[in-house]
Amino acid sequence: MHPIRKKRLTIVLFLLAGVSVAVALTTYALRQNINLFYDPSQIAQGEAPVDVRIRAGGMVEEGSVLRDPESLKVEFKVTDFTSSVLVEYTGILPDLFAEGQGVVAMGRMDGNGRFVADQVLAKHDENYMPPEVNEALEKAAGKRASMPGVQDEAAASY
């Protein structure tokens, strides 16, 4: 082969190799690390897979926060005012975690309908509502509104 062609070929091969390694790594890593979001209604209906890392979010139900007296374990319910899911977490909760606040948690469903969180996020601003939570609340409120006779207290407060 002509030396210039040969060099160009080498460069192109290098580039191709680099790109394919990158693509392979990306797809592999993506498949492992995509965390889908589920709202409490979806979890109550059993849509969320068991033992797969997912995100869940909603409002922390008033009066639902329960602490273990010996450790840093804490339990609370996250609700979209239609359904709620029990969340279990061991560790330090963020500064803005409070009853009646929006949260997003990362973790896995155990087999018994409990969400075991390894990370709980409440954002920097008290007025801030995670968009996922906002959407979940709206969706749940919409469902309730379409059911006659159900008074929609929760939706009224937003």
Binding site: Q32, N33, F37, P131
Partner: peptide, 9 residues
């Protein structure tokens, strides 16, 4: 769908 890509990626 809403998803997030975690630090491990």
């Amino acid at each position: 769908g809403r998803l997030s890509i975690g630090e491990p990626f």
